[in-house]
Structure formats: C-alpha cells, structure tokens
Amino acid sequence: MLVPALAALVCLGTAPGAEAQTLGDLTRGIKKSGKGTALFQTVEFQSKTFKALPQWARVVRSARRDVRSFRPCVQDASQCQSKQAKSWRAIVTAARAMSRKEKLIAVNKFFNRWPYKLDREVYGVSEYWAGISEFMRRSGDCEDYSIAKYYALKELGFKESELRIVILKDRIRNIGHAVLAVYEPNDILILDSLSNLILSHKKYKHYVPQYSMNETTRWAHIKS
C-alpha cells in the first residue's frame, strides 16, 4: 500500500462534495429503501436527482468522455496517445480475462499505487472530485481513487447497479473518507484506498456512510 500514513490521517476534514449540503438537503424528496440492513448496516433513502451533488454530476460527464477516449488505446496499443491511456489499457487488458474476485483485487491494487495528494496541493481548492484522466495524471485523494476504480470495473463488466461510491465518516480518525462498494449476491465488498485488502462492509464498524451514488441514483444513509 503506497498511501502515505500522514495523508491517510488527514484524508478529508468533511464529507467530500458536501460542503454546502446538510442531511436535510441530501434526504429531501427521496424515499426510504433500507431497514438497517443496507450498506454499513444503515437505513438508506434513494433519489434519482444529483442536484445536491454537483461535483459528482460533473465527474460522470468527464469520466464517460475519458472512457470513450481510452477505448482505441485498449483495442490497439499503437493508438495510445497519453500516459493515462496507457495506464488504463494496462489494467483493463490485464484484468479482463480474470475472475470477478480477481478483477476486484487487481483494480484495487492498481489504483492504490497512485500517491495520495490533497486537493489543495493539486488543484488549489479545498475540495475537488477528479475525473479518471485527471487522477491518473495528477493523483488525488479518497474519492478520486474510488471514481477511477468504479469506471475500471464498469469497463471490466460490472453492472452499474453493483457499484457505488460511498462518502462516509471514519469514527476512529474522526475524518471524512470515501470508498467503493461492490454489491455481490450475498455481501457488499469494500475497495478502500487505505488498504489492498477487500473486506465485507460488515467488518467496518468505524465507517458511517453519509451518502452514496452511482450514475443513476444517490442514497442518503442514517445509522439505525
């Protein structure tokens, strides 16, 4: 694991992208869809609008452009026009013949190699969600790892409904953090930038999700 220990302790002071949102903002107009057995043992509420998450809406647009631009490189190495495209080709081609579990391990390890960097250091602002190409070129922080993993797994055949980026509170370090949740038939697995281990969400008693999202839906979470 190449995430610097100090950086891991200061991952995020608040939930990323939520500076102007309250729990009321995130739950307004959405419906309950869990009974304390959902992600990280919470009750969750879902909505189909991203008005409360403008950074995510922007990232979705940029990430889709990135993936489309990388595909010629994936198909033919001579078409690779950037280091980011070559990196994308490396993980997609290496993992596409793997089993589902092997893909998760490979993708998690691959992107965890990028050095952790604060948004203030890279982008000059307190909070910025990076697209895939931006992250692979300049690196980033918690949610940026999760975004790259999300789209890599989609390219490797995982369904959108099986993936969520989760913004949460780490109660041990008393900081905000972000991970990728992967929904399996009998469990939810967590890909974390702080570790190459992939564990069940039930193992993370100190993680309290605030909200999560994929490209079609967002969920607000309340600890039951």
Results as ranks from 00 to 15, higher is better:
178 A>K: 03
182 V>W: 09
6 L>R: 10
91 I>P: 05
60 V>L: 09
132 I>T: 08
65 R>K: 12
73 C>T: 13
52 A>E: 14
14 T>E: 13
105 I>C: 00
38 A>Y: 11
133 S>Y: 02
28 R>C: 08
82 S>A: 11
62 S>W: 07
137 R>N: 09
223 K>E: 12
94 A>F: 09
81 Q>M: 06
5 A>F: 13
27 T>L: 13
15 A>T: 15
156 L>M: 12
137 R>W: 07
186 N>Y: 04
141 D>C: 04
35 K>M: 12
207 Y>S: 02
182 V>P: 00
71 R>G: 03
165 I>S: 06
132 I>W: 01
26 L>Y: 14
55 Q>N: 08
33 S>R: 12
221 H>K: 11
156 L>F: 08
185 P>E: 00
52 A>V: 13
17 G>D: 04
174 N>M: 02
169 K>Q: 09
44 E>Y: 00
209 P>V: 00
69 S>A: 15
10 V>L: 14
143 E>T: 14
131 G>P: 01
12 L>K: 13
64 R>D: 10
188 I>H: 00
155 E>T: 15
35 K>E: 15
170 D>Y: 03
130 A>P: 03
140 G>N: 06
38 A>P: 01
13 G>K: 15
154 K>I: 13
19 E>G: 01
48 K>P: 00
70 F>T: 06
222 I>N: 01
205 K>I: 07
85 A>W: 03
203 K>R: 14
46 Q>L: 03
88 W>H: 10
155 E>F: 09
15 A>K: 01
220 A>L: 00
60 V>T: 12
12 L>C: 15
208 V>D: 08
151 Y>E: 08
125 V>M: 03
217 T>S: 11
67 V>A: 05
144 D>A: 05
20 A>K: 05
117 K>D: 01
117 K>Y: 04
145 Y>L: 11
47 S>N: 15
15 A>I: 15
194 L>W: 03
78 S>A: 12
5 A>G: 07
105 I>A: 03
82 S>W: 08
96 R>M: 09
137 R>L: 07
34 G>F: 05
171 R>S: 04
186 N>M: 03
170 D>T: 00
119 D>T: 08
67 V>G: 04
131 G>L: 02
88 W>L: 07
153 L>P: 10
83 K>Q: 12
27 T>K: 03
14 T>L: 11
4 P>E: 14
80 C>N: 06
68 R>E: 12
63 A>D: 02
163 L>D: 06
156 L>Q: 05
153 L>A: 07
18 A>E: 07
174 N>V: 04
16 P>A: 06
174 N>I: 05
149 K>G: 05
12 L>D: 14
208 V>I: 10
153 L>Q: 05
36 G>P: 13
89 R>H: 08
144 D>W: 14
187 D>M: 00
134 E>K: 13
145 Y>A: 11
163 L>P: 12
114 W>Y: 04
75 Q>H: 14
169 K>G: 01
111 F>T: 05
105 I>F: 00
62 S>H: 07
142 C>A: 15
184 E>P: 01
219 W>C: 04
76 D>K: 15
82 S>C: 05
10 V>A: 11
41 Q>N: 14
156 L>C: 09
1 M>I: 13
73 C>A: 12
57 A>L: 13
46 Q>I: 09
